[in-house]
């Protein structure tokens, strides 16, 4: 019996371009077999980069995302994220597959890098899958190339492969066939 298809609302905030959004939507569709609908976040929500460039608290952002409607919401933002404990995070998720956020602020390639926008989109895709993985209940994984491996530098993001390892993949399949999960704590 085929697992039910997860439905994911992908929202773009601040200056995140449609190209990056489309690329992320594509990998999420491919890797998770999800049905993704792409939209721009309401300007009033103030989820994008703030005018003064100040960091946004990842936990607070997840809270305000939770208030919206839909099965699973993934936000891509150009705001830099932090938590009370960590100076920065690349993303965060609330376990239970309802909300996740990925920041592009630290994922951009250096201006001189010819792969520029493509590399940013690739990293954003990996981070999106990583945070959604947390959302679907996965914890960090020790497999060197698994998407669920912990990363706190872009090099480490790049070292990860483009897919989940078989153990993490098994877990995802189980979650998808069991239907929506209960909300839990948040992970970055």
């Amino acid at each position: 019996m085929a697992a039910p298809t997860p439905r994911i609302d992908l929202m773009l905030a601040g200056g995140v371009t449609g190209e990056v959004g489309a690329r992320v939507a594509q990998v999420v569709t491919e890797r998770l077999g999800a049905q993704v609908s792409l939209s721009r976040a309401p300007a009033a929500a103030a989820w994008g980069k703030s005018p003064d460039g100040a960091q946004r608290d990842a936990g607070a952002l997840l809270e305000s995302l939770l208030a919206g409607a839909g099965e699973t919401r993934l936000l891509l933002t150009d705001a830099d994220l932090c938590t009370p404990v960590l100076q920065y995070v690349f993303g965060a998720a609330r376990r239970g597959a309802t909300v996740a956020v990925v920041s592009l602020a630290r994922l951009a390639a250096p201006a001189a890098d010819p792969r520029g926008p493509a590399l940013l989109a690739e990293r954003a895709g990996k981070e999106a899958l990583h945070e959604l993985g947390h959302g679907f209940g996965l914890t960090h994984c020790r497999e060197p190339h698994c998407l669920m491996r912990l990363a706190h530098t872009v090099q480490q993001v790049d070292e990860r492969g483009n897919d989940f390892c078989s153990a993490c993949r098994d877990h995802l399949n189980e979650v998808f066939s069991a239907g929506p999960t209960q909300p839990g704590g948040s992970r970055s």
């Binding site: 932090c82 009370p84 404990v85 100076q87 920065y88 995070v89 706190h152 530098t153």
Partner: peptide, 10 residues
């Protein structure tokens, strides 16, 4: 110093 820089901590 809190908050901790993840890379530094690692």
């Amino acid at each position: 110093v809190k908050p901790v820089n993840p890379e530094e901590l690692s």
